[in-house]
Nucleic acid binder design. Structure first.
Lengths: 252, 252
DNA sequence: TAGTGGTCTAGACCACAAT
DNA sequence: TTGTGGTCTAGACCACTAT
């Protein structure tokens, strides 16, 4: 067994099993080897195997059933989307196939709404970035980014043409965005954005607002986006909150 | 310490800590007792405490930092939404404040699209339910439900007026819906739905499609919904996929 | 009864942050 | 150096499913 201090065993095992599932070595509906068998073949303890499996379960790749075994999920499905999906990873990798037109990049007084989202004081300034993202020569979305002053002052227009913003934060500034709270609603194109997105006034648009947080839960970016409804939809997995009745507890 | 065979220790501990956080006994940003201390006061092993904490971490209530401690999340925030949020729980509890007008309830031939989503054969039938949900006397959403025949045949119109569908599935049929895949896009009201939702043609609507699965990953319901944009938005937490470079592995 | 996943323990060592 | 969370072990017993 290859030991690598930098990468935990359970993570290595998860990676291997994930690849095997995605590449079809284990087919949807089929059962995985039992935990004992996996522990044996990887030469680790069962707890470590379970740690790996629970990651796969969280991602919905496998389903575990007591007394029966562990099965590859029917939803271990490849991306079905003809458009683009809006998961965090896509937002990052999106830079690959898209070009960005920066319309504005300037430090501005913070509005109450933005300041609230970024947890800034009233007198603070923010970097405002206005841009249009193009996918295959067609306008795709109209984006407003707002960044706290200490982060914003380190970002230049040159950065933006080459890389997506989240990648700049990570690689240039050492900020690790790991979480975002996003809300989505429907709206229609007005006279201002319609020409920018090359649609008629009144066409449907998907509006998303999100605040992005780093590992310390500091807000590092607030984003306001309008997507063309014909080019974008958003997919999520909803999970029911585990519900089990609990009982009282006595401290000893 | 109270032992209850029916409820795992880690789950009891999670419940207690969750309540303490939500009720403000631990304030956002403050640190929780260390894992060792929690293990001591609950009189359980540290592993069991960690299991409880990892549930809270998954739900975003706490943040753990190696070498520093465990902290209550800044986002342990109560519902901010003036409208309704679209999480699975809401869909269930929604019945409380809403009334439902059933426009149609009938067994029909399955279309290819629906059959595909519910994993049914070509000749299968489905129960189709068409309804309008009202919130405080105002139309809120236009909903089409499709259910597999064996489930659908057990549902009557009477059921629907009293309880939300998911609750019927659970209480009357013993089906436990635990997961759904949902996609969301923007559209506008056409001449058919505009009067039903009491909006003008051309007003923005949020369109959601979702397939609901039970614990065995069987699709138990397919739903197609149009929401009035002025009454509904959807909030989600996005999480960045953990990314760590992994290395090769040698089987022993 | 045999096999599976679910829960739990006691103990160990490590990496990281603060002092 | 001390205290924290991160990883890992070996072993135990339980609950559920299938035979």
């Amino acid at each position: 067994m290859l030991r690598d201090k930098a990468v935990p065993l359970y993570y290595q095992i998860e990676t291997i099993l994930r690849r095997q599932i995605l590449e079809g070595e284990f087919l949807p509906g089929s059962n995985l080897p039992s935990e004992d068998m996996l522990a044996e073949s990887f030469q680790v303890s069962r707890i470590t195997v379970r740690q790996a499996l629970s990651l796969l379960e969280q991602d919905g790749l496998i389903v575990r059933q007591r007394g029966k075994g562990t099965f590859v999920s029917q939803n271990a499905r490849s991306v079905e989307s003809p458009k683009l999906t809006g998961q965090m990873e896509d937002l990052i990798s999106m830079g690959i196939k898209t070009t960005t037109k920066v319309l504005d990049l300037s430090m501005q007084e913070v509005s109450e709404r933005i300041g609230d989202r970024l947890r800034l004081g009233k007198a603070a300034k923010v970097l405002r970035i206005e841009k249009v993202r193009m996918v295959e020569e067609e306008p795709f979305s109209y984006v407003l980014n707002y960044l706290p002053p200490d982060i914003g002052e380190k970002i230049t227009a040159d950065d933006l043409v080459t890389k997506p913003l989240l990648m700049i934060l990570e690689e240039k500034l050492g900020i690790r965005p790991i979480e975002a709270i996003q809300s989505i609603e429907a709206t229609i194109a007005d006279a201002v954005v319609a020409p920018l997105l090359q649609v008629r006034v009144g066409e449907p648009l998907l509006k998303a607002e999100r605040t992005v947080f780093d590992e310390h839960q500091r807000p590092v970016e607030y984003v306001w986006v309008l997507y063309r409804a014909d080019k974008y939809f958003f997919t999520v997995k909803l999970e029911r909150r585990r519900s089990r009745d609990s009982v009282g507890w006595k401290m000893k």
